[in-house]
């Protein structure tokens, strides 16, 4: 009897967790396919009343939402690419080469990831203004390194340290050059780790709002979160369009998570718990 109650309680808890996590998405989706009239009524319902896709058409036709999507993909992608290249180099050096000061270097990288983003906004704004970089991609790509490079380096150092150095040594004994060893022997083994680091670096850059808010003032340079928030700063709030925008902004993220869940989890914990 007690066990049955325990089982029921457990199942209820699981149901609550899933509902709390996913129901807000359902509600946004439901609202995104309702007409503005339905959205402005005093009452709403659990199911969409009259299905319509006008809001989806409007955010692409009127608000040109494709542009922020491409902007976000480009800046987050570039920041990830640079982070993965620099992070792999650093991680290889830290995990393979006999260098002194490994602990202080990793400590420094970790410390940098704790630097408050808000404290960088003012100085970077002044520097970018001086360089005429405001409203450019580089005014986001470079600051995004602060978000993605520390975690990429940490994850990669953790991953590379787990790959036994014997394999590379054996290859070198057999007469392979350093370049051959790295490209033919090391890289294939390291690829999953690099991929994991890249996903996390990408998600963290994609997540940014503060830098974009501070360095971007022209709508066609907006990133996705900035564009969505700016919808509502317009003199008239188009709720339906915000709902549709949130759905479109969340969809690729949800797909990434569903397909790469294991990797994301291992990356998140490799950087902090195992490390």
């Amino acid at each position: 009897m007690r066990q049955r109650m325990g089982r029921t309680g457990f199942n209820a808890l699981v149901a609550i967790i899933i509902l709390y996590s996913l129901f807000p998405f359902y509600w946004v989706f439901k609202s995104s396919v309702e007409s503005s009239i339905a959205l402005n009524r005093q009452t709403s319902s659990l199911w969409p009343t009259n299905w319509t896709f006008v809001h989806y058409e409007a955010i692409f036709a009127v608000e040109n939402f494709l542009r922020p999507l491409l902007n976000s993909m480009f800046v987050a992608g570039m920041a990830t690419l640079i982070s993965v290249v620099l992070g792999s180099m650093a991680a290889y050096g830290l995990s393979r080469m006999p260098i002194k000061g490994k602990v202080p270097i990793l400590g420094f990288i970790l410390l940098v990831s704790f630097f408050p983003q808000i404290a960088m906004v003012g100085p970077l704004f002044l520097v970018f203004r001086h360089l005429h970089w405001l409203n450019t991609y580089q005014s986001l790509i470079f600051p995004y390194l602060i978000l993605s490079l520390p975690i990429t380096t940490w994850i990669l150092t953790a991953f590379f340290s787990q790959i036994p150095a014997d394999i590379e040594e054996a290859a070198m004994m057999d007469g392979a050059t350093i370049t051959q060893t790295i490209t033919r022997v090391f890289a294939p083994i390291a690829m999953p780790g690099i991929f994991t680091a890249a996903i996390l670096g990408f998600l963290l850059s994609w997540n940014d709002f503060l830098f974009a808010l501070s360095f971007i003032q022209t709508p066609n340079m907006d990133t996705v979160p900035l564009a969505l928030v700016n919808f509502r700063n317009a003199y008239y709030v188009h709720y339906g369009q915000i709902y549709a925008g949130v759905v479109i902004a969340s969809l690729p993220i949800a797909l990434i998570v569903l397909f790469l869940q294991k990797r994301i989890e291992s990356g998140l914990t490799a950087g902090s718990v195992k490390g």
Binding site: V14, I17, I18, S21, L22, P24, F25, W27, V28, S31, L203, W206, N207, D208, F209, V224, P225, L226, L228, V229, R232, Y239, I242, Y243, V246, A249, S250, I253, A254, I256, V257, L258, Q261, I264, E265
Partner: peptide, 23 residues
């Protein structure tokens, strides 16, 4: 459960705030 809790984590904070504001 694991997948459903990881999705909110991956949604940008500003978008999450917008979502809950609308909620």
């Amino acid at each position: 459960v694991r997948a459903s809790i990881l999705i909110p984590w991956a949604i940008p904070t500003a978008v999450s705030a917008l979502l809950w504001k609308m909620f």
